[in-house]
Design a protein around this nucleic acid. Structure first.
Length: 237
DNA sequence: AACACATTCAACCGCAGTCCC
DNA sequence: CGGGACTGCGGTTGAATGTGT
């Protein structure tokens, strides 16, 4: 899963690091510390550019770097921090001792961002349409351009009246992901409130939903309270 | 078993910010 | 203040690996 080794026009090696290079880098930094990345490879006997050395050290060799799967707590925290900080990976990584910005960025791109790719135009299973407190059970399967969804959205969702949502209340539907555990509706209250646009579980579609665009987070405590007030029984919250 | 497609993640690249002369 | 050197960040790439058919 690494790029094969090659050499650039300056004779600098690129691609995957081998054990000997790792050992040289470890030994040098162990003795002299993280200093002067540009000159480091020369003194450490490495045919690498300084940037490559720094990256290898920071993301892989540095003591304390944790690798492997993220815990559920970490995943939740990443989602929340990303809502606040956006793509400030280094700032997010500061909240996860041992995790690197690269790791978090990779996680986000692989596990979160890809879901947005299933947005408008892709198939969404509309498993429940919420119109009132008595959640109407409808098993619909459609994409967001279909007349089925049009009909669904045109019905009033009176349960949401006066609960402070920023979006037009008549255009609220609850959508359930067909597969992914992370975005399953059992935990989406904390994780998946998208303001204005859509996600797989909850879609807040503007009146003209043909123009659904990029989703953005707005994790709102108010939303959680409101949601619990209305749907607490149903979701066991 | 063989192939195609999807996912993962280490590493690279370009650029912006900071520092120093 | 201006400019070059250096560092760090975020976006992207692409081979290895995993999964599905």
């Amino acid at each position: 899963m690494v790029k094969p080794a090659s050499f650039d026009i300056n004779g600098m090696k690129k691609g995957a690091w081998n054990e000997e290079e790792d050992n040289k880098l470890r030994a040098f930094i162990g003795r002299f510390g993280e200093t002067n990345w540009r000159q480091l490879p020369e003194f450490a006997g490495l045919k690498r550019c300084g940037k490559s050395c720094r990256l290898r050290w920071m993301n892989y060799l540095k003591p304390g770097v944790r690798r492997g799967n993220f815990t559920q707590d970490e995943k939740d925290h990443i989602v929340k921090l990303h809502k606040i900080l956006g793509n400030k990976w280094s700032a997010i990584a500061e909240q996860f001792p041992g995790r690197t910005d690269n790791d978090i960025k990779n996680y986000w791109n692989a596990h979160i961002e890809k879901r947005k790719g299933r947005r408008n135009g892709t198939c969404a299973h509309v498993t429940r349409e919420i119109k009132t407190h008595n959640l109407a059970q409808e098993e619909l399967s459609s994409d967001s351009n279909s007349s089925t969804i049009t009909n669904c959205l045109n019905q009033n969702t009176t349960a949401f009246s006066g609960v402070g949502f920023s979006q037009p209340t008549e255009n609220i539907g609850v959508f359930e992901s067909s597969a992914d555990s992370y975005f399953n509706h059992g935990s989406f209250i904390e994780q998946d409130y998208f303001d204005g646009m859509e996600e797989e579980n909850v879609m807040f579609l503007p009146s003209d939903y043909s123009d659904v665009g990029v989703a953005s987070w707005d994790l709102s405590a108010t939303f959680e309270q409101d949601f619990n007030k209305i749907f607490g029984d149903y979701y066991g919250k």
